[in-house]
Design a protein around this nucleic acid. Structure first.
Lengths: 204, 204
DNA sequence: CCAATTACCAACTGATTGGTCGGTTTATTT
DNA sequence: AAATAAACCGACCAATCAGTTGGTAATTGG
């Protein structure tokens, strides 16, 4: 059993560093040697644990990326009351993470989607699946918000989810270059405005 | 003078095909040979006209991409009355272009921004400059809309511009994978909802 | 303690890349 | 038509890449 531990430890070191470099430099622009250099490991070690670069990346997506997106954007929302507030809170948190140069994984995900679009359908499938999990959870939460009296019954939950995800991905793309603090501020301000629009109208 | 015409004709053929392939496959994933093969031209011809791959790309950005973004997203808005309607119209047009698999250049731009982020600061600068032109124009148009009585005086024009650009870039990213028709529909619906929020309140 | 398995090393291969260069073809000038 | 210059050709180079292979060091079970 000890051997399995060592195996998994090495694999996770590779995956963790791999995700970091793939995110920073892009998948196609990151060589396996780049990753191995950072870990002082050799080609042999890599191909002992993984079949190919693609196989390696898919394992990162399924093991690391999925969990991170889930714990950052899905879990904080799931089953909570007052959906509009928890949603905007989770997005605020993600953008704050982004500002501290740490990886915010919603953006990591959308970055990879952009990179693999039209190039690798299989990987795209894995990435879109994660996106779908987020979307479905947003929709469910919004629907529940309707029955709980937090969200206006007339709003189209799917459309709102689309709009929220879109704007988040977009603002993150803009934030890569300078003044991300101001961008974040203005974005959140408008998101909250928009949320006022779809929140349960108080009866006069 | 005839020689100059031939020179420019060849250069433009290269740039046009280059933009197409760079957009489809990404810059780093597209070899110069790919482009030359499609044009039945040789390496010698390429390096006769351009100094390097990077130089070539920058010339595409400045000559082609800038013009396209400008004519698609800036010109239709500039100086028009009823800014919220012309803005949503221009975005609707862009998304319809996208659905017919034609390049919509706002997205081409944001794609390149994603690809070059953290890799090539010089190219990033050129790309962000174009983005800035769009943003500034949106802000100016919104401000004018205030004085003309179309836009609520209390809205933060810069924040609205940020929000509009973000959501557009984001929804385009999502549209790469299937059901773009439904996405577009839901997105436009919410954009118009949002615009209602910031339009001049009719006095009761 | 020893054999077997696991984990890793590092030189190598073949393909691809951006870029160079000496030469040829095509067009223009005189 | 000869001379000159512009436009283009394609073999070549050095670097880089994913992946292979034959070996070695470390760990573990008997």
């Amino acid at each position: 059993m000890e051997k399995n531990l060592k195996r998994m430890a090495t694999m996770q070191r590779m995956q963790s560093t791999g995700l970091e470099l793939f995110y920073q430099q892009g998948y196609y622009n990151t060589s396996i040697d780049d990753i191995l250099k950072k870990l002082s490991l050799s080609k042999g070690a890599f191909y002992y644990h993984f079949q190919s670069k693609e196989d390696f990346f898919i394992s990162i997506v399924q093991n690391l990326l999925f969990q991170k997106v889930y714990s950052m954007l899905v879990e904080p929302i799931e089953g909570q009351e007052d959906p509009l507030n928890v949603i905007s809170k989770s997005i605020e948190d993600a953008l704050e993470t982004a500002e501290h140069n740490t990886m915010d994984f919603g953006f990591v995900l959308s970055n990879f989607i952009t990179e693999f679009n039209g190039k690798n359908p299989e990987i795209m499938k894995y990435l879109m699946d994660i996106m779908k999990v987020w979307e479905v959870n947003l929709i469910t939460t919004l629907q529940k918000g309707k029955t709980d009296g937090y969200v206006d019954r007339h709003v189209d939950s799917e459309a709102v989810a689309t709009y929220v995800i879109s704007s988040y991905i977009g603002v993150r793309t803009l934030m890569v270059e300078g003044n991300s603090r101001m961008l974040r501020y203005k974005y959140i301000q408008q998101l909250k405005n928009y949320f006022k629009l779809i929140s349960q109208k108080a009866v006069a």
